[in-house]
Amino acid sequence: MHELAFVEGIVQQVKELKLFHRFNRVREIEIICGPYNSVSADNLEFVLSHLSDQCLNQAKVSVRRVISKYFCSQCALEFDDHDSIEGLCPICHSCRSVVEARRAPYIHKLEVEDEN
């Protein structure tokens, strides 16, 4: 069900972008999100395909998952998942690190077809 809310966000953003960049159709939507977000390209494409809006109903969706960011409360270092073993700070080895950003899903890029 949350896919409907995601698609609502896509429709809204595409509407606004259409005012600035004149285009007919969106070919591809690239979404970036965190490793745990429930974002599925197939589900989004399915919902988009049911839109009456010709601009979006054939758009392909790709989802790129990026790692979360940690913040070490001991030495204030910001680091990524792959720099760390089980969240330990790679510099001071403190375990007092917190997940700082889980990367809420956002539209990274749109590939569109020009009006001409």
């Binding site: 809310a5 995601f6 609502e8 966000g9 896509i10 809204q12 953003q13 972008l17 960049h21 285009f23 979404i31 974002v39 809420a104 899903p105 956002y106 539209i107 990274h108 890029k109 749109l110 590939e111 569109v112 077809e113 020009d114």
Partner: peptide, 15 residues
């Protein structure tokens, strides 16, 4: 044509 967006999908909810 490619357009960079960088806007959250749930920005209406976040507001």
């Amino acid at each position: 044509m490619k357009i960079n967006v960088m806007d959250k999908l749930l920005s209406a909810n976040d507001a």
